[in-house]
């Protein structure tokens, strides 16, 4: 019989994901591993996992990994890439890591135009510590630290890190994707591949934001949490390419 589906070589064998049922992290992990296989960069890739739910990413993705302290991923990745410029270096971060405690590191690695790839998993909540409000939490969203729903007078607005980073000339490619449907998963994989390819080609800093379902902390079924991304989250965080400096410019008036 023809084998149509198997484990990517860049995912370790014989493990069980520690992620909650319905979580988007395991899909994102698999996509990263598939792309590493397809680009043939497994031997030269170095990953930087975060603090947060993905802290144990090195249990799953079978490449060299160096753990960063909370929020420090892009700074650590900078150090690795500057010493080993022929390696493919990526950092994998959640919204607590990238958009809260690590905002400064994210902005400044991007502003320096480091030739690294950042995967930004946005689930609009602090996942691992049990569902507290994140800077990315949607207005009105109920979390354990925004019980009546996020309120702008107390908590400010959802922070759009991808749009903010696009303002920096050092940033070459930013796309926002989601892993809540087969079609979106296919698009996410394409974006991950393009981002890695840009790093291989020396284009510069790229970030793929991935909207990811968190049924546990959203207190929804897996199916409802996939729907919530389409119905609510995407309105705040529209999907698509936000910046791509290598794309041919559209002619004015057309």
């Amino acid at each position: 019989m023809k084998k149509v589906f198997s484990r990517p070589k860049s995912l370790k064998e014989n493990f069980i994901y520690h992620y909650c049922p319905g979580c988007g992290h395991s899909i994102a992990h698999r996509l990263v591993a598939e792309v590493i296989d397809e680009l043939g960069i497994r031997g030269i890739t170095i990953g930087v996992p975060p603090a947060g739910c993905a802290v144990l990413a090195y249990y799953y993705i079978d490449v060299d990994m160096i753990e960063a302290q909370h929020g420090r991923g892009p700074a650590l990745a900078t150090g690795i890439k500057r010493v080993l410029p022929d390696r493919i270096v990526f950092s994998y971060q959640g919204d607590g890591d990238l958009a809260a405690i690590g905002t400064a590191e994210s902005l400044h690695a991007a502003n320096r135009g480091e030739n690294i790839t950042v995967f930004f998993i946005n689930n609009a909540v602090y996942g691992m510590t049990g569902g507290q409000m994140a800077p990315t939490t949607i207005l009105g969203q109920k979390t354990t630290t925004s019980a009546p729903g996020r309120d702008i007078t107390l908590d400010g607005y959802p922070i759009k890190m991808s749009e903010i980073l696009c303002l920096l000339p050092g940033v070459k490619y930013v796309e926002r994707c989601a892993v809540n449907s087969p079609a979106n998963i296919v698009k996410t994989k394409k974006a991950i591949k393009k981002a890695f390819q840009y790093q291989i080609d020396g284009v510069g800093f790229s970030m793929i934001e991935i909207l990811s379902q968190c049924p546990t902390n959203w207190k929804m079924s897996s199916i409802d949490s996939c729907k919530w991304i389409d119905e609510v989250m995407v309105k705040e965080y529209p999907l698509g390419v936000l910046k791509d400096v290598t794309a041919p410019e559209k002619k004015k008036g057309k």
């Binding site: 602090y126 691992m128 510590t129 049990g130 507290q132 354990t144 630290t145």
Partner: peptide
């Protein structure tokens, strides 16, 4: 939040 004190501020 940071484990294991999280429940206090939460």
């Amino acid at each position: 939040p940071i484990t294991p004190n999280t429940h206090i501020p939460e």
